Simulated scan of single mutants.
Amino acid sequence: MLVSPIATTATEIVLPGKVEPSGLDVRVRELPAPAEGQVVLRMDATGVSFAEQQMRRGKYYDQPPFPFVPGYDVVGTVTATGSQDDAALIGRRFAAVTKVGGWASHLLVDAADLVPVPDEVDAVSAETVVVNGITAWQMLHRIAKVRSGATIVVLGANGGVGSTLVQLARHAGVKVIGTASARHHPYVRDLGATPVDYRDPDMYRRIREIAPDGVDAVFDHVGGPGLRESWGLLRRGGTLVSYGTAATKNEDGNSQLPVLRSVAQLALWNHLPNGKNAHFYNFWAGKRRLEAFRGRLREDLTQVLRLLADGALTPQIAARFPLAEASAALALAESRTVAGKVVIVSDPN
């Protein structure tokens, strides 16, 4: 039974192909009525992640064919449901990971993918820790299993995932060395990390000076040739977590090849008799067991949102733009001049 038969008009930002940020299109369409188990979510906040920056170049590992609506995650309010059983969801605010589709005024989401947002957390703040928070939490606690007193390296400590990872690590009693450009070093210090300039050709030597006995974990979103340097920073028993291939984002060619190369290299390192561990973090790993995947996601995001509500995490908001200015939001995120996450909010009525 459809709870709300009123048609919903959605404004969507469309990525039509390999275009510059200014080449995004806008379309308006009527959403289909939500099916059983679906809801209509009014977007209150979405964001620009590194995934969208890769997608517009056709470089994200398993992106859909053009054209499509980008938007990896969203925070919004349920306005309609596909069944009477879900009617209590209407008017409540939730977060969801969508992978695509978030850059829209309204969208259809499976009710099982919704994670409640605490009342004391506003939509923009919550948006900064949806995919970023889940990624950081799972890498730190589920994969590397870093303990209090450990020392880790976070590449790109000023970014969306990086800044969240630094905060989660510091909350857990972990010492953090974070790389960023020199202009972002005060920001990285404020997060609680020791900054190192990623543009310094001696960056890895500098990290070794700070941690001469090696580090317990390295979180590397860059990939490419530098992955070997990250591996070399680890002490015996340490863990390298690779979660991106930013070094190759501007290269032409197959979008899957850089990831496959990284995965192969990490697998080889895992067979070396040095006690180190290497992992490639895939957000969507385990989705074939959908209920278990959803359960982990819900559990981890709930933990992160609670830390945000309690003040243990501070939302890192680089800037906010209305949906109509999504092109400007994407351009700013790609400029590498900001710290934190660029957030897109619903257009004013």
Score class of each variant (00 low, 15 high):
259 V>P: 03
259 V>A: 06
259 V>Q: 04
259 V>Y: 14
259 V>W: 04
260 L>H: 10
260 L>N: 15
260 L>S: 04
260 L>V: 02
260 L>I: 04
260 L>E: 11
261 R>D: 15
261 R>T: 03
261 R>E: 14
261 R>G: 05
261 R>N: 09
261 R>L: 14
262 S>L: 09
262 S>D: 13
262 S>H: 04
262 S>I: 02
262 S>M: 14
263 V>G: 01
263 V>P: 08
263 V>A: 11
263 V>W: 05
263 V>I: 12
264 A>P: 06
264 A>I: 00
264 A>N: 10
264 A>H: 12
264 A>C: 07
264 A>K: 07
264 A>T: 08
265 Q>H: 06
265 Q>K: 08
265 Q>E: 14
265 Q>S: 15
266 L>R: 05
266 L>V: 08
266 L>S: 12
266 L>G: 11
266 L>Q: 08
267 A>M: 09
267 A>H: 07
267 A>Q: 14
268 L>E: 14
268 L>F: 04
268 L>I: 00
268 L>C: 06
269 W>A: 09
269 W>I: 08
269 W>T: 01
269 W>V: 09
269 W>F: 09
269 W>Q: 06
270 N>Q: 08
270 N>P: 05
270 N>W: 03
270 N>F: 06
270 N>S: 15
271 H>E: 15
271 H>D: 13
271 H>G: 07
271 H>L: 13
271 H>M: 11
272 L>F: 09
272 L>W: 08
273 P>I: 00
273 P>M: 01
273 P>V: 00
273 P>C: 04
273 P>E: 01
273 P>K: 00
273 P>T: 00
274 N>Q: 07
274 N>K: 01
275 G>A: 03
275 G>N: 08
275 G>I: 03
275 G>C: 14
275 G>P: 15
275 G>R: 02
276 K>N: 13
276 K>P: 13
276 K>I: 01
276 K>H: 06
277 N>D: 10
277 N>Y: 05
277 N>T: 00
278 A>I: 02
278 A>C: 10
278 A>Q: 02
278 A>N: 05
279 H>K: 06
279 H>E: 12
279 H>T: 00
281 Y>F: 15
281 Y>D: 02
281 Y>P: 03
281 Y>N: 01
281 Y>A: 04
282 N>K: 03
282 N>M: 14
282 N>G: 11
282 N>T: 01
283 F>A: 12
283 F>K: 09
283 F>R: 05
283 F>N: 05
283 F>D: 13
283 F>P: 10
284 W>M: 12
284 W>F: 15
284 W>E: 11
284 W>I: 03
284 W>V: 05
285 A>C: 03
285 A>L: 10
285 A>I: 00
285 A>W: 02
285 A>G: 12
285 A>D: 13
285 A>N: 06
285 A>K: 09
285 A>M: 06
286 G>I: 05
286 G>E: 13
286 G>W: 03
286 G>F: 07
287 K>E: 10
287 K>I: 12
287 K>H: 12
287 K>W: 11
287 K>T: 06
287 K>L: 15
288 R>W: 05
288 R>C: 04
288 R>L: 09
288 R>I: 01
288 R>E: 13
289 R>G: 09
289 R>Q: 14
289 R>K: 05
289 R>L: 08
289 R>Y: 09
289 R>M: 12
289 R>C: 10
289 R>T: 03
289 R>V: 00
290 L>T: 00
290 L>K: 03
290 L>S: 07
290 L>W: 02
290 L>H: 08
